[in-house]
Design a binder for these strands. Structure first.
Lengths: 120, 120
DNA sequence: TCATTTCGATTACAGACGTAATCTTAAATA
DNA sequence: TATTTAAGATTACGTCTGTAATCGAAATGA
């Protein structure tokens, strides 16, 4: 039921899913590609803490942040929301749109077929 | 490039994709399940016109609205955005999440397999 | 013709979000 | 110890969204 994560926040979270705990500095540094100022990144860290998505441990005056939720959990939630919002829960329509639109590579096709076979 | 459509606006649009042109009254009536006031629905119609997603034809003082964009176009755009935003464009990850998480019915599985076969 | 109804247009307003700048205070340094 | 720095906290502010209420004009009814 937790409050959800915005797009920008998710980009920050992504960093911490890759590696944590990290100081805000670390996160800022790993996000240097996005041209956000340090202030902006810190705002997102702060909001994620408020939303109870990140935990932190103090060390001196620095905070070291770690995710409190699994990446897969967020992805599932988002996927579910997307399916409902955009496709009214019509899974076949969603899959068709992705498959038809995205020109899957043959590798992706094979991967997906295997996945489906496993699903029995 | 067109300006994007919010979730609520999409619900309204959905009605007009099913049938158009429709007067605002018609739309309101078809949305009676959502407990929006007439005012709210009209706000969405108005915003959709401003965003150049809906066209209208005047008849007396009534407007009759029609979509200016195809449903499939919006769905593709949204799907594409979702893939990029949430899965960083990783199609395999996206499909895996949907397939693993959503417990596809055997019908859906078959549908998807056929779809994949067509993709050659 | 004058009042009332009923359109669409305009305005409202709070919360989320993107994007920071400023404030406070504790730590580091001179 | 006094000063400077730097971390997080707080505040800012415009846009978008959800959710309407009000306004102005045109149509309709009395």
């Amino acid at each position: 039921m937790t409050n959800r994560v915005s797009d920008s926040e998710k980009i920050v979270l992504e960093i911490l899913w890759q590696e944590s705990p990290l100081s805000s500095q670390d996160v800022v540094q790993r996000l240097s590609a996005h041209d956000w100022t340090e202030k902006t990144v810190k705002t997102f860290l702060n909001r994620l803490v408020k939303k109870d998505i990140l935990a932190f441990r103090k060390e001196g005056r620095r905070y070291f942040y770690s995710p409190k939720v699994e990446r897969s959990e967020i992805l599932s939630e988002e996927s579910d929301g997307f399916l409902k919002r955009v496709f009214q829960g019509d899974m076949k329509a969603l899959l068709a749109t992705f498959v038809e639109n995205k020109q899957l590579s043959s590798e992706e096709l094979k991967y997906l077929k295997d996945l489906l076979d496993e699903e029995q």
